[in-house]
Design a protein around this nucleic acid. Structure first.
Lengths: 100, 100
DNA sequence: CGTGTAAGGAATTCTGACACG
DNA sequence: CGTGTAAGGAATTCTGACACG
């Protein structure tokens, strides 16, 4: 994976990068919206992608959306993406089979 | 700048990513080979570019190079790069002037 | 439900120094 | 010169709980 996906940022930096309090960031994890890794000592580690996701979450919260709605929305988009990927792969396979 | 240049990684993670001890990482800073930023509290923050640079430094150290040699070598490469950039910019300007 | 806060403890990092070679 | 280590302190993070609404 790219640097964007490497979980290397502590919660203090994430707080600075997103403008969110640490309390909020931990709460969104409790609500299954972000999934940091942990050091052996238990310290949370986030990726830049997590930072982007948190900013997106913050915007949706400002719009009055609730955490469970955001979670469902993300799951829905994930499923859409999977469908798209499957179709794309199918077309690529079809094109490939025509060639041989 | 890109994510690669954002100083967000603590020394513990850098140690893990590079395989270097924290002692070595701090020493290479003392010898002016890397330049982390600091939080208000004084904690060092590195970028992925710093991590790459440290891996490069580690390789050169293994080859028996000394810190001051590595520093000079990097300065030399920086100057070369500046010359290249200046030439490139000059050629672009020339091409642009021909057009108008 | 979402978030602030005080509490106590544990993990992380910092500096300056001594040691060895 | 480059690096390990023990020392003491400070900054950072963690969890569980109480509070408010």
């Amino acid at each position: 994976m790219s640097y964007k996906d490497k979980k290397v940022i502590t919660i203090g930096m994430v707080s600075e990068l997103t403008g969110l309090t640490e309390r909020k960031i931990r709460y969104y994890e409790e609500r299954k919206l972000v999934f940091p890794e942990r050091t052996p000592g238990g310290t949370r580690k986030y990726s830049f992608l997590d930072v982007e996701r948190l900013i997106d979450i913050a915007n949706k919260m400002e719009d009055g959306m609730q955490t469970f709605e955001i979670r469902k929305m993300e799951q829905k988009q994930l499923r859409k993406k999977e469908v798209r990927d499957r179709m794309l792969r199918g077309q690529l396979n079809a094109a490939f089979n025509l060639r041989k």
